[in-house]
Design a binder for these strands. Structure first.
Lengths: 212, 212
DNA sequence: TAGATTGTTAATCGATTAACAATC
DNA sequence: TAGATTGTTAATCGATTAACAATC
């Protein structure tokens, strides 16, 4: 089935992983069907929003019945393109890069870390969570022979712009950026910026707010 | 100076750390003043939005001149409450918790990691990035004598709800949650959920979109 | 003063919620 | 059939952009 992907608001896309997670939990708990109202209570959103969101893609429900949990879960799985394996490489085998190589939630959703790249001779040649760490100098050749879909950027912000552009030149299709810089590459590829510190700052703001 | 903090939209709060970062860069580059138009070009937002956003708090600019970079930077620093030190504890000394203990961006912005807690006897008693790792059994006593403002949650999702509530009971004022669960604590404290995998899922969606 | 740029109001745009006819 | 619940339109709410008077 092909989905109606035109004009899906950013806000809806941000909620998709959450639907995926809650439906996955329902599935695990043996719940076979669910109404938008029931789901709305679990997720703390409105039932109306759930129905609107889902109808951005297709009509997954049935009047008087609700939604089949397994069916809806699989549909969202497909919308998020989690049905096929994505090959990941991690640039930078420091603490954060290593933590992500060890992150268990990735593999179970089809994101397989194939390789890591670093410039530190002490790290090159080792393995992190069974993933080989290569010299950055070997990146071009590796991309040519093996290839990768997504690059995770865990390198200093001073070099990340250059590395990102190089990865795009080598054919990477998406970037998950943990460096504290906003990236711009040509041609544009999807980028998710993970500016961790921004969230602590927001937390700090909210805490100040809360005590007023 | 006290800021007009009523009704600041969530969308504005999300942009504050970004203003902070860009102004910090301007400051580092020796730029003394900047107009909303210039800043808008750097940040790729509209000048109008910048002016609207800032006016949620106060009038920081001057007609015909623009904004004093250092002044505006310091004001946002204050709005985000980065002027005073926040004491952080990290629950879970696994890969992710350890990476965060090593994360350099925290200390420079006043977030100081004071302690880590774990249940693994092999980790208890060690140090990660010079931060001591204690037994979770010692948490209550530690909170009583030392205290902490923010707890970072890097523990399995099965126990995170319980631990979060316990931390709130012990007086924690904010939670930075890396576990893959949505938390609810009583009384409510500010929570930032870092559902890392959600962002790879969104990336996956966008990559699929991009190739259509 | 003239030019520049803010602060702020008004207009537009988009997202959320409410309501209800369609229908299982 | 009667009850339940969707899909979808309309109403509301909120956020962004445009415009311009105020003023440095």
């Amino acid at each position: 089935m092909e989905y109606n992907r035109k004009n899906v608001p950013e806000a809806v896309i941000r909620r998709l992983p959450r639907y995926h997670r809650y439906l996955g939990e329902c599935l695990k708990n043996g719940i076979k069907r669910i109404s938008s109202l029931e789901l709305s209570k679990r997720m703390q959103v409105t039932a109306s929003q759930i129905r609107q969101d889902l109808n951005c893609f297709a009509q997954f429900g049935q009047q008087g019945y609700g939604y089949n949990v397994e069916n809806l879960y699989m549909e969202i799985n497909r919308i998020l393109n989690l049905t096929e394996t994505q090959r990941i490489i991690i640039m930078g085998a420091g603490h954060l890069g290593s933590a992500l190589a060890n992150y268990p939630n990735m593999k179970t959703r089809g994101f397989v870390v194939k390789a890591m790249f670093d410039i530190d001779p002490k790290k090159i040649g080792t393995r992190v969570a069974d993933v080989p760490v290569y010299d950055v100098a070997a990146l071009d050749e590796w991309m040519k022979t093996e290839g990768a879909d997504i690059a995770v950027l865990c390198i200093p912000k001073e070099t990340v712009g250059e590395v990102a552009q190089h990865l795009v030149d080598l054919g990477i299709r998406g970037l998950w950026n943990f460096s504290y810089a906003d990236l711009k590459v040509e041609p544009a590829v999807p980028i998710q910026n993970m500016h961790l510190i921004d969230h602590v700052m927001m937390l700090s703001y909210q805490m100040k707010e809360a005590e007023l």
